[in-house]
């Protein structure tokens, strides 16, 4: 029966899909399937690319894009020579590099910990709990940060118990980066470990059994079996995060900003929002945004190139 069908198929399918036109005739409807998605990205992802040119013009909504005067790199020069430039770049780089240094290895360590946990039930509970913060909205999460770090918050109640004093976490502008990064680690650690856990479960148990027979300790098994197994995943994620090196999450930085910490918490994306949306300086803020996105993209391409040549792992 099966064989008969196969033969029939071989006989009927071939002439049907003769040449490109035949195939198109048969599958044209697939393009209708993709059409809504293409329309969406055409309008909301690609049309804005066309609008980037206002970074090189003095855009006035009345005159339209083409009617506005062309000014070349004027806005870029203004930005690079403005007094905020170095502060913005420094804050953005400090926060993102710090986030990367803490946020990249910790999920790996956590995945290894979970993987070596003996009690399966405990592992399930721990996963359930640690994935949860990922689903809390940024607004609520930032609200919780403020509540817990407030002068009457839980941290200060504990600190007060031991020292009798209280620490002004929120008022300490230099502490902004620590709050930003470590709360982020807490929020993402569990969920970001999933991908590594799935890589670890793909490791053949026989490898571990052989290692045990050879007398390898668990630390040696981690070093020689588990780490090599998750390396490709880790490299891909590392490439992707370096591409985000200037794209510190807008929402969280914006919501955690207070006048008192602005010197250290103002980053490129929040500045773009304030200049562009609040003050309606469209061209200037488009130029800043373009600078940001270009640098990110170039970094991503370079890192990906290095990775594909040295480790043979590439994003595309």
């Amino acid at each position: 029966m099966v064989i008969e069908q196969r033969n029939q198929r071989a006989a009927t399918v071939k002439p049907k899909s003769k040449g490109l036109t035949g195939q198109l005739k048969r599958t044209w409807v697939l393009y209708l399937f993709v059409l809504p998605a293409l329309l969406y990205i055409a309008i909301f992802n690609y049309a804005p690319l066309y609008g980037i040119q206002i970074a090189f013009r003095d855009y006035k909504p009345m005159d339209g894009i083409w009617g506005s005067a062309f000014v070349g790199f004027k806005h870029f020069k203004t930005f690079f020579t403005s007094y905020q430039f170095w502060d913005l770049l420094r804050n953005t780089l400090v926060i993102s590099t710090y986030s990367l240094l803490a946020g990249f290895p910790i999920p790996i360590v956590f995945a290894l910990l979970l993987n070596y946990l003996k009690s399966g039930r405990f592992r399930k509970v721990s996963q359930m709990v640690t994935y949860a913060p990922h689903f809390i909205s940024t607004v609520v999460f930032c609200g919780m940060i403020f509540i817990f770090l407030a002068n009457d918050g839980i941290f200060n109640q504990v600190i007060g118990l031991f020292t009798g004093r209280s620490v002004d976490f929120i008022g300490n502008a230099k502490g902004f980066k620590h709050i930003y990064v470590w709360s982020g680690v807490m929020q993402g650690m569990g969920f970001n470990s999933i991908i590594y856990i799935s890589a670890l479960t793909a490791v053949s148990p026989e490898l571990h059994e052989a290692a045990i027979v050879d007398g390898a300790t668990k630390l040696q098994r981690i070093r020689h079996i588990d780490l090599p197994a998750i390396l490709p995943t880790a490299i891909i994620l590392l490439i992707m995060s370096t591409g985000q090196i200037l794209n510190v999450g807008f929402e969280k930085a914006f919501l955690l900003q207070k006048p008192i910490n602005l010197q250290y918490s103002e980053i490129i994306s929040t500045y773009v929002y304030k200049i562009g949306i609040t003050k309606a300086q469209y061209s200037y803020s488009t130029a800043i945004g373009l600078f940001n996105n270009l640098v990110s993209f170039i970094v991503l391409v370079i890192v990906n190139k290095i990775s594909s040549q040295t480790a043979k792992i590439s994003l595309w």
Partner: peptide, 25 residues
């Protein structure tokens, strides 16, 4: 088509050009 889609994950026009599109619509 996939390449066209995936490109949007790595490069965007930025806040203001997107805002102007939405406003224009």
């Amino acid at each position: 088509i996939m390449k066209i889609m995936v490109f949007t994950m790595y490069f965007s026009g930025g806040l203001i050009p997107s805002y102007l599109i939405v406003k224009g619509l």
